[in-house]
Design a protein around this nucleic acid. Structure first.
Lengths: 151, 151
DNA sequence: CCGTATCCCCTAGGATACTG
DNA sequence: CAGTATCCTAGGGGATACGG
């Protein structure tokens, strides 16, 4: 029962975002079609973040333009299929721009669009948090699993 | 081919996070066991964000303590099962604290831990970004789908 | 080099029914 | 009220092979 003050200075913001979600839920039919969004930009974005590779790819593109093969090397455990899909998806959303240089052998460059770049700072925030709290979370999990579970 | 400068002021940060991922990939066996983390806090965190409900639950808890049933009402399209699982998971990670008040009928309160609260600001960053760029992404997607796709 | 096409597995997550 | 326990399905994602 550590007594702590809830950091009231950030609660207004939290309140704002809370209400921004209010219209969202999408009553009942959670995912009518696989792709078409339900109209809640936040949930849609979150779904994309869920794609396991999106964030990694965005980060890999954060510093400069990369070729397809470079990306494969930077993210060793991504399959060729998923790299293509992820890039297409990001391109579709306007976050990544694709430049095909007709040549032999073919060469394709990917880079973040301005909008894609604007995603970096917030993303950075999360990643920074993860880096700082990863240890604590790991410890908590171990204690939880060692102990009784809930409790 | 909009010519734009890559916003160099944020690139150092991006570089830092890039290198912080360098050790991560987890050669070959992407997910040996379902649960145990691979040692990369960033990827682990990302995996949790992928859980489709985690973020929503954290947000629902952002302002104050909530009871189980309150959460169900706030997130109408979550199943009872998934709400329980998500909460357990968050508790396990030390992001949520669970208080069981023995009474009839039973009453269980959930609240963010200090660490959980510290996640709010970065989360807010992403959500804010999504709210601002959702429209643009939607438009981009429509154009992409209408047009030829890639190319 | 940069993809697309197939096949297949696995598991996040929904629906439903039952307990303390 | 606050959960477990079962059952089941859709689709994310890996492996492999082929095409421009």
């Amino acid at each position: 029962m550590t007594k702590y003050s809830p950091g009231n200075h950030l609660l207004p913001a939290a309140a704002a975002l809370q209400s921004s979600l209010d219209g969202c839920p999408g009553r009942g039919a959670a995912r009518p079609a696989p792709d078409p969004p339900r109209g809640c930009p936040i949930r849609d974005m979150l779904d994309h973040l869920g794609s396991r590779w999106t964030v990694l790819v965005v980060i890999a593109l954060s510093r400069r333009t990369r070729r397809f093969s470079e990306l494969r090397r930077e993210i060793p455990d991504i399959s060729q299929r998923m790299l293509t899909r992820t890039l297409r998806d990001l391109e579709r959303l306007g976050l990544v721009e694709r430049a095909l240089h007709a040549a032999v052998p073919p060469r394709v460059d990917y880079r973040l669009s301005p909008m894609g770049m604007s995603l970096l700072p917030p993303l950075l925030g999360i990643i920074d948090w993860a880096a700082r709290n990863g240890g604590a979370m790991h410890g908590a999990r171990q204690r939880y699993d060692a102990g009784a579970g809930p409790g």
